[in-house]
Structures are given as structure tokens and as C-alpha cells.
């Protein structure tokens, strides 16, 4: 592992984004617009926004980074840049950590902006605002790690895009955001128990209610553990020798 090579990779990914201002604008503006829509949708029932606002804020970066990473990684694979990199001294871990740094940075910008909007203008309340942003960044890195792993199974960009509904939507449906988990059928509860987003959502919901307890920390450990596991599995899919 080499911090210099990770850092160079992070800078490279961020420079690629900088040359694509429209993507930056979309990454920053879309979560804000969605948050405003949710706020207006429940204008007559402000308590709903109070309970949805924090989890949504923390889940946007997960979805965004999942998509961005799976496409970026697929482009590295198909353009030959990955093959070139893997004939150089860069370690596979260096590459993945570089991606993680870059997307954590983007997630921090994204989550900070939605936070300022939600807490400042939309009247969302939480005693743990910094924790919300920190969880949003952690979820972004989780999304990145899962997106990276998923990209190994995509041969085309069409497939990579379809991984969003395939990998991400079921997790959003079952994580407890729409229906509390204890009201779900038993098999759905069992399914949601093996989905990492369930724990990411639970941590955010607990922060939102002000219940930072042992279960909250367990959630954080699960999210971190799954991130490390997905990165390790992702590293295994970066083969120096290919058929």
C-alpha cells in the first residue's frame, strides 16, 4: 500500500469530475431538489418531514456514489486504463482507497449542502447534525464499495445502470424507511436483515430520534464492516491477469 498512489488516484478522479461540471451540478443539486420535494409533499404534516428528512439526507450519497462508481469503474475496465494501471506498481488497494477518498470528498460536499438546506431553510431539526453528515459520508463510501463490487459483474454500461434498481431499490424498499421493519412479513424482515442499507437507515433513524444507543453503534460497525468486505471483494475482482 502506498498513500502517495492512493492520493494521486483520488486527485485524478476529482480532476475527471472537475472537467464534467454538469455531473457536479447534478450530484449537488438533485438531492437538494428531492429534499425540497419531500418537504413540500408533506407540507401539511411537518412531523413526517421531521422523521424522513434525516434518513433521506444520509441515503442520497449512498445511491449517487453507487451509480457513479459502478460506471466509472466499468469505464476503467473497458477503456484499457485499468489494464495499464495493473501493469504498473500501483496496488489494487491503492486504487480502491483512492476512489474511496475521492468519493468521500464528493459525498461530504453533497451532504453538507443538503444539510445546510434542510437544517437552515426547511426547518429540519436534529441535535446531531455533524453525526448526520458523518453518516452520509460513511454511506457514500458504502455505496462506492458496493458499486465497485457490482461493476465487476457488468459487461456493458446498460447492465451497470440496471444494477441501481437491482441492488439499491430493494434495499431502499426494505430498509425500514417506507414501512417499519417489525410490520413486515417475516421473510421480508429476514431479507432486510442481510441488507447493509437496513443498518445505514437504522443508524440515521436513531440519530433522527435522538436515540444514540448501543444499537446505533452496532449499526455503524455493520456499515463499516460491510464497506471493508465489499472493498476486499472488489479488490479481488481487479485481476492483473485476464483471459
Amino acid at each position: 500500500m502506498s498513500p502517495g498512489r492512493s492520493w494521486a488516484t483520488a486527485l485524478r478522479v476529482l480532476r475527471q469530475l472537475r472537467h464534467d461540471p454538469r455531473t457536479i451540478a447534478l450530484l449537488l443539486a438533485v438531492p437538494c431538489v428531492l429534499q425540497v420535494l419531500v418537504h413540500e409533499l408533506f407540507a401539511g404534516r411537518p412531523q413526517v418531514f421531521q422523521s424522513l428528512g434525516v434518513p433521506l439526507l444520509g441515503l442520497f450519497p449512498f445511491v449517487a456514489m453507487f451509480i457513479v462508481t459502478s460506471i466509472t469503474m466499468l469505464r476503467e475496465r473497458t477503456s484499457g486504463t485499468l489494464e495499464r494501471l495493473l501493469t504498473t506498481p500501483i496496488g489494487r488497494g491503492d486504487l480502491l482507497v483512492g476512489y474511496g477518498i475521492a468519493f468521500a470528498f464528493v459525498a461530504a460536499a453533497q451532504a453538507s449542502l443538503v444539510s445546510v438546506l434542510s437544517f437552515g431553510l426547511l426547518g429540519l431539526e436534529s441535535d446531531y447534525r455533524l453525526a448526520v453528515v458523518a453518516l452520509a459520508i460513511a454511506n457514500a463510501v458504502l455505496g462506492m464499495a458496493l458499486g465497485l463490487f457490482a461493476s465487476a459483474f457488468a459487461r456493458t454500461e446498460f447492465q451497470a445502470v440496471q444494477f441501481m434498481p437491482a441492488f439499491v431499490l430493494p434495499q431502499i424498499l426494505l430498509c425500514g424507511l417506507l414501512v417499519p421493519r417489525d410490520e413486515m412479513a417475516g421473510w421480508l424482515q429476514a431479507l432486510s436483515a442481510v441488507m447493509p442499507l437496513t443498518y445505514a437507515y437504522d443508524a440515521l433513524a436513531r440519530v433522527s430520534r435522538g436515540a444514540v444507543d448501543a444499537r446505533f453503534w452496532l449499526d455503524v460497525v455493520v456499515v463499516a464492516g460491510v464497506t471493508v468486505l465489499a472493498l476486499a471483494l472488489g479488490a479481488l475482482t481487479l485481476k492483473r491477469r485476464t483471459p
Partner: peptide, 14 residues
Amino acid sequence: VGYQTQAPSVYPDL
């Protein structure tokens, strides 16, 4: 060892 692949393997957006 330096290797140049047949297709230009560089980043188009840099």
C-alpha cells in the same frame, strides 16, 4: 517495463 496498449488507454476527461 513500459506497456502501450493498442487502444489508447488514457482518461478522455483529463
